[in-house]
């Protein structure tokens, strides 16, 4: 249990007759980046609010570091909600100090750390500016700083990259990885599947208030493999198809003179090696790749099947 930071056991939540969460079990390994996925309205936000103790679950337990999740543990969490903002009329520095103090830092420490972060992001000049003078991306940067200022053990980020240009998005991405390297655990909610593949170690997929899939990203992708391969070769397409006909099914083909690209599914117990052995005499192979489903494919497939 020691390598699980956060665990939710059979969490359910109802609003009147509407079931927002139905018996959710999730465990987040320590030091991992955990993707919380699901279509709009699936219950992700409710679940995240429960983790943040904003909403109380009707039933179920939450464990933090293997013990009961207490009110004061909230100070070990950093939360960047999807619906986020700052006081427009307040100065940036003053506001950051206020929010840092609300997270339990004392004023002196908060000031010291803010100075460090402002320098790191090159935004020292913003201290006395009002938030309404900042662009959306600038405000997002300030918000990120405020979220991580108290060095939380658990960082919950809901769509952290929206509003950032690619340069700043990659800056934030690097920061997230850096924070993880220092030992923090990150729960990450997003609709962008490419960032899930890029960053997440494991995921849980919630749909219609229920968890329908979870595990590590590599496992899940392996699980959804369909034994499909793409082969690029120079040679005669007819000879090639004749050579494979018993062991594989041809899904797609492209021909440009004698340069061909085919997508095929290996059938039954046949292995890729035997397939290559069969086709080797007929052509010159340029590339041979397994087609692993993307998280996006898996997302769409599982949600639609549900």
């Amino acid at each position: 249990m020691s390598n699980t930071l956060f665990e939710a056991q059979s969490i359910s939540k109802k609003y009147g007759d509407f079931v927002a969460l139905d018996n959710i079990n999730i465990s987040v390994p320590k030091g991992s980046i955990f993707g919380l996925l699901g279509p709009n309205g699936a219950g992700k936000t409710t679940f995240i609010r429960i983790i943040n103790q904003i909403t109380l679950p009707d039933t179920g337990n939450l464990l933090f570091n293997g013990r009961e999740f207490l009110t004061k543990d909230i100070e070990k969490i950093g939360y960047l909600p999807e619906e986020r903002g700052l006081y427009k009329k307040m100065q940036v520095g003053e506001q950051c100090l206020y929010l840092a103090q609300l997270r339990g830092l004392d004023k002196v420490e908060a000031k010291k750390r803010l100075r460090f972060w402002f320098e790191k992001f090159g935004i020292q000049g913003w201290w006395n500016k009002k938030v309404e003078e900042l662009s959306k991306g600038m405000a997002q940067k300030v918000q990120f700083v405020v979220t991580v200022i108290h060095e939380p053990e658990l960082l919950i980020l809901d769509e952290p990259f929206t509003g950032f240009d690619p340069v700043n998005a990659s800056l934030i991405r690097d920061e997230i990885l850096e924070i993880r390297k220092k030992g923090a655990t990150i729960i990450f909610s997003t609709h962008r599947m490419e960032t899930v593949e890029d960053l997440c170690d494991s995921i849980a997929l919630i749909n219609k208030s229920k968890k329908i899939l979870d595990g590590t990203v590599s496992e899940i992708r392996k699980q959804y493999k369909t034994n499909t391969f793409r082969i690029e070769f120079i040679g005669n397409l007819v000879n090639f198809t004749n050579a494979i006909w018993a062991g594989a099914e041809l899904l797609d083909k492209k021909q440009d003179g004698d340069h061909c690209t085919v997508t095929l599914k290996i059938l039954g117990q046949n292995s890729p090696n035997s397939l290559i052995a069969n086709v080797l005499p007929t052509c010159q192979i340029i590339s041979f790749n397994e087609i692993v489903p993307t998280m996006s494919d898996i997302f769409i497939k599982t949600v639609q099947a549900d």
Partner: peptide, 18 residues
């Protein structure tokens, strides 16, 4: 209303009780 339309309220209620 200001806190709500600014969307800062969720950040704050994750630190203190509503």
């Amino acid at each position: 209303i200001e806190e709500k339309t600014n969307r800062i309220v969720e950040v704050i209620v994750s630190s203190v009780k509503p």
